[in-house]
Amino acid sequence: MVISMEDVEHVAKLARLYLTKEEKKMFKRQLSDVLEHARIISGIDTSDVEPTSHAIPLANVAREDEVRPSLPVEEAVRNAPWSEGGAFMVPKII
């Protein structure tokens, strides 16, 4: 196995996913399979190869900083599961 149960739990925490015991076991096996396959790329000498950031290179794109109308508050909160007075509501943070 490429990854351990501790790895799965650590990654789930980073990804903000709550996983059941069964899911953890399944992901441990499946992620190990995929990463095992992905390992073939680690053997290739890429010491003088630049990584790709954009496949089709474009120059920096900038525009004038003009004042334009933005999304009205009612629209912005329209899809929120819980909003009050134009604010997004969440359970307590601290």
Binding site: I3, D7, V8, H10, V11, A12, L14, A15, L17, F27, L31, V34, L35, A38, I41, S42, I44, T46, V49, E50, P51, T52, S53, A55
Partner: peptide, 26 residues
């Protein structure tokens, strides 16, 4: 999401993500 988070996490970034982006160049 799990796979991607793993590939970007500390200690694995170079081996997986950075290497994959170099393969992309090839």
């Amino acid at each position: 999401i799990m796979l991607g988070t793993y590939a970007l996490s500390a200690g694995y970034y170079e081996a997986y993500y950075a290497q994959a982006q170099k393969i992309r160049t090839l």
